[in-house]
Structure formats: C-alpha cells, structure tokens
Amino acid sequence: MQTEQISIFIENKAGRLSDVTGILAETGINIRALAVADTSDFGVLRLIVNDNSKAEEALKNSGFTVRKTRVVAVKVDDNPGGLHRILDVLKTAGINVEYMYAFIQQSGDKAIMIFRFDQTEEAINILLDNGLTVIDGSTLSTL
C-alpha cells in the first residue's frame, strides 16, 4: 500500500530545479507530484513520477544524488474538513507526519495527498481502520 518517491539533493542556485525537470522531460518521464523543502543553502526535491527507476537512473547519470523514500498516498474528500479528518485520525493515533504535499490530478471529486510518516506501516493501518482510502504505488502510476 506504499508509494515510492524519489528525493533529490539540489543546491539553491538559479536554474537547478529546471535542470531536473529538463532531464526528466528528455527521458520522457511524467511528473505526477512535486514538492521542494529548502533551506537558504540547499533543498530536497521530492517527486512522484510515472517511472521511478528510469527517472533515478537518468538523474544519477547527470550527477544528482538520488534516494528512494517510502510515502503513502491517501484520498482526500474534496470538501471542507476532508484533510482535517485524516490529520485528526493520525493525531489521535499518535502518528507523526514528517511532511505532506498534494498529488496533481486532473479530474474527479477527490484529491490525493502524499504523506511521509515516521511509522509508515502503522499509519497505513490506522488510516484503513478509519475507512480512509490508501492508494498503492502501482495504482497511483496509472491515474
């Protein structure tokens, strides 16, 4: 039920982000979700793409430091309180959210959020027990 995300180290200098997107475009990789966490010096770029292995190889060949991380994709009701419900469930269970970001989806009445937990397995169980929908990686790449 987990999803694989690739994380890339980038220095905070002009054009670095577009270098990454350029490499992925050339390799024919589709970016499905993207988030940047940065400090004044560097950033960690997190990506969900349609082909992780191909993306990882292309980026490594261009000299980037790449790492795969396990994240969880959760369906969110596209109405007030949708996200709050998920966070509330996690809070009650004492699960810590390291970070989260939105998945790019063109249509539908549901949004998808990507979560990184410190205890991934427990988080998935709690979410499922509370009737929430967790999307696994293979399904996600077909959306």
């Binding site: 400090t39 790492r67 991380t69 390291e98 990184r116």
Partner: peptide
C-alpha cells in the same frame, strides 16, 4: 559534497 550515504530525504537530518 553530499553523497548517497549522507543524503537523507529529510531536511532536518541534513541540517
């Protein structure tokens, strides 16, 4: 220089 061994997905750890 960072390398794969040092690189963490979490900014906090890099800091």
């Amino acid at each position: 220089e960072i390398n794969e061994k040092l690189f963490s997905d979490e900014v906090k750890q890099l800091q």
